[in-house]
Structures are given as C-alpha cells and as structure tokens.
Design a protein around this nucleic acid. Structure first.
Lengths: 144, 144
DNA sequence: GTCCATGCAAACGATTTGCATGCGT
DNA sequence: ACGCATGCAAATCGTTTGCATGGAC
C-alpha cells in the first residue's frame, strides 16, 4: 500500500480510488492551491463520471480530518497539501496565491487562543511583486 | 460632523445615512463579528426598505477602502471593526468567533511577503473552552 | 448638474442535500 | 453482510448584477 493510502487509512477513512487520486494530486502540488472545481476538472480526466458533489464531499472530509488545509477567498474554498503553518499571500490583482514562510513562531501565537486549536490560516491580501511592476509600467494604481 | 462621517469621507467615500448607520454599528461592536445578513437585519429596524444588495455594496467598499476588516468562514463573509492585526478564533462546535491578541510581531511576518500588503487575517479554527467543557461533561468528542 | 448610491428584482455560482446504487472492510 | 462512499439531480444560500430613481457634493 502506498503512502497516500496509508495516510487516508490512518485518518480513519476508507480508501477509495477517488480519494487516492484527489489526495495524490493535492499533496504532489507542493506550494500550489486548488479550487474544488480545478480538482474536479483534474479527476474527470480519468474518471469522467465523477460528479462535483463527490469531489466536494471528499475535500470536506479530508479537511475535517486534517489531511489537507483549506481557506476561503472571494467566496470560494481553496485547498492545499501543506498543513504546517505558513503564509498564504493572495494577490488581489492577478488572483494568484503564493506561499511564504513564517520565520517567527506561529505556535506561540496559537497559544494565545483559549481552547483547542485544530487549524490556522494566515491569509495576507495585497498586490504581488509582478503585478506591482506591471502596474507601475502602465501608470496604473501606483498610488495604492 | 461626527467621527464616523469623517472616517467615511477621509476614505474617499460619500457620506450617506446608510453608510453611517452601518459603520457605526460595526465600529461600536468592539470585538464582535457580523455577517452581512446580521447587519442587514439591524439596519432594517430603522430603514425597513433597505435591500440586502445595498448592505453588500456598502460592506464591499468599506472593506476595499480599509475602513473595516473581513474574512470568510463556512462560505460566508464576516466583518469586524478591528483592522489592526489580531487572531480570530472560530469555534467549530458553537460557531462563535472571538478575538485574541497577538503578542508576537505580525508585522515581521507580513514582511516575509514579497509584494504590497493590504490586509491580513489570522484565522484559527478549533473548539472553544466553553464547548470543550460541555463536551467533556457529556462525554462527547473528548478524543478530538 | 453631475455622478455616485440606493432600491428592487432577477440572476449567478459555489456548495449541499436526498436518495439509490456500489464498493471497501 | 454492513455501513460508508459514490453518482446523479435538484435545491439551497450567500452574493452579485442591471437598471431606474434618488441623493450627495
């Protein structure tokens, strides 16, 4: 049994081909961020009949069990394989999401919370370097 | 002109009664978190004709201009008057959102991001103390 | 007077639900 | 064999859009 199957099983879930396929895809895409729809599109390549609802169900249990991480931007959920604390930087201009490392200790930040911590997401919004550059070149939005 | 009106005007927006009412409500609710719907319900008390769309529009411009802060949980946007960095702790059991202070320096964390930072939200999910207690008393979910 | 905001209705899109069938254990 | 997962259709719900009227500057 592969490592992906082990992960699914060890989190108390049944191993099915759909779950393996989706978890593989998310875990292999290191530093990448996926919408449910993009995952659906991907899985449909080999399994054209899989409905969106099944993908949503799978993503939901994966997130609940801590197999993957999720957060919401612009009314849609994004999923990623990295469950350790890091920064998700969302560019409001091009929509891209990129990871940044946290050099400080986010665990000490979480320690401030009264209660049991299950997950944490630091979502930073702004304009990425690339967009800043092209906006300056075009004389747009320099004042932001 | 009151402080609320000044804030609206200084952010380059026209001062309207609806905007004043909504900004007052959000800013007065210190440490509270509001859904668009709850704000709509509140404003309807004095202005029964105001449609949800107007409330959504107002919340959108307020957020874009940095007058208020927003983040998304469970497919819905939440708004708060605090724009300085802090922790939003969401309890997955009772749904309540509470603020915690950040004692570390989140500015240094934001400095890791390559690009221009416009806003940042640290959303921690878990089970609040209250729910932990009642769950233990009832013998439910202790193993989480 | 001009332009932006409001009010209203209708549309949209991401996600969920109900139920029958299929599959993992 | 049992119970959870999948496939499918339809519904739900938060949010957005288009357009005419009204109000701020």
């Amino acid at each position: 049994m592969g490592i992906i199957e082990e992960q699914i099983k060890s989190h108390g879930l049944k191993v099915t081909p759909q779950r393996v396929k989706i978890l593989e895809y998310i875990k292999e895409g290191d530093g990448e961020h996926f919408s449910a729809e993009s995952i659906h599109q991907y899985v449909k390549k080999e399994n054209p009949n899989i409905p969106a609802a099944t993908v949503y169900n799978i993503l939901k249990v994966f997130t609940e069990r801590g197999l993957i991480n999720s957060f919401e931007v612009n009314g849609r959920a994004m999923y990623e394989g990295r469950v350790e604390p890091h920064i998700n930087f969302y560019c409001e201009s091009c929509g891209k999401i990129t990871d940044s490392e946290i050099h400080g200790d986010i665990r000490s930040i979480e320690a401030e919370v009264k209660g049991k911590v299950l997950s944490s997401v630091l979502l930073v919004k702004g304009i990425c370097e690339e967009c800043l550059k092209s906006e300056k070149e075009n004389g747009i939005l320099q004042e932001i």
